[in-house]
Amino acid sequence: MLVTLSALTFAEYATGSRARRTEIVATRRIPADEYVGAQYYAPLLEAIPVALASADPTAVLTVAAQGLELSGQERAYQEATDGLLEWWRRARGVVVTAGDSVLETGGLRIDVTPHLAYRTKTGAEVALFHLKEAELPRDTAIAAARLMQVCMLDLLPDAIPVVVDARRARAYRIPANTNLAKLDAWLASQATAYVDHQRAIS
């Protein structure tokens, strides 16, 4: 049976420390409906496309933050919202619809579903949002962006993949000089490593 990870979680595993990699593998053994971490940002992620397509994004995101019960959730949502709106003002995009995709490699399924798709004056982009308090490492962002790039025909043809560190309003794109063949080979090896890691602690 293939294991499934989101693109951003897999990228975090691939570039993470030994302790972080072990934490990711361990938490993914918990059923999704029992894993608190999976639900922490879910209301905000669901609200983002609606908010950014509206005339008053702040109001929509404020509603999404109401009734939060988990520890630190209200502050986390506020910080992520502030940074996200700052990034969006610079992006000057118009929200559009994107598809989703799945990559299967090394016995692992990677769910490649953008959090947002939009068009700017220079073209279309698809984005994943890092909402956590910890800063998003550049290598993690580039790995996640490459996963989207590989699936772009399914997502939004000719779009550019972007990974946004929401709290810091910072967007990452794949550098033009990236050796994609080496990056792909490394990602494939990390998928195999994840599956082996999971088997080892099962």
Rank of each mutant, 00 (worst) to 15 (best):
L136N: 05
D100H: 11
V162I: 11
A80I: 08
L128S: 04
T58W: 09
A53W: 05
P161I: 01
E135V: 01
L153G: 09
T4D: 00
P43V: 03
G107A: 04
R167A: 07
P114T: 09
R29G: 05
C151I: 00
I201Q: 15
S202K: 13
A14E: 07
G72H: 10
R21E: 03
L187S: 01
Y35S: 03
Y194H: 10
H130Y: 08
A14P: 06
I142V: 12
A127E: 05
D154E: 04
G107L: 01
V3H: 03
A159H: 13
A181C: 01
Y41P: 03
T22K: 10
P157G: 03
I30F: 04
R146C: 05
L2S: 06
A124F: 06
V162C: 04
Y41S: 05
E79F: 07
P114Y: 14
T58P: 05
L183K: 06
A181H: 14
E12K: 14
T113A: 15
T178I: 12
R29P: 02
A42E: 13
L45H: 11
A53N: 15
V150E: 01
T4Y: 02
D82H: 09
P161N: 00
P175Q: 04
V95P: 06
C151W: 02
R170V: 00
W87G: 04
E34K: 00
Q73Y: 05
V36F: 14
A143K: 02
R89C: 14
R167V: 02
H130I: 04
G67T: 05
R28Q: 11
A176V: 13
A127V: 12
A193S: 13
D154K: 04
T105A: 15
E79D: 14
A19I: 10
A141T: 00
R90N: 14
S17P: 08
H197P: 02
G123P: 08
I110M: 11
A47Y: 02
R173L: 01
R199C: 13
Q149F: 07
I142D: 04
L44F: 09
A55N: 15
Y13R: 12
L2E: 09
Q78S: 13
L103P: 06
E135C: 01
A127Y: 11
W87M: 10
L5N: 11
Q149T: 01
V150T: 00
V96N: 06
R199I: 15
A51D: 07
D33I: 00
P175D: 05
V63G: 12
L108F: 08
L61V: 10
I30E: 08
T120P: 06
E74G: 10
D139P: 01
A38I: 03
A127R: 10
L5Y: 10
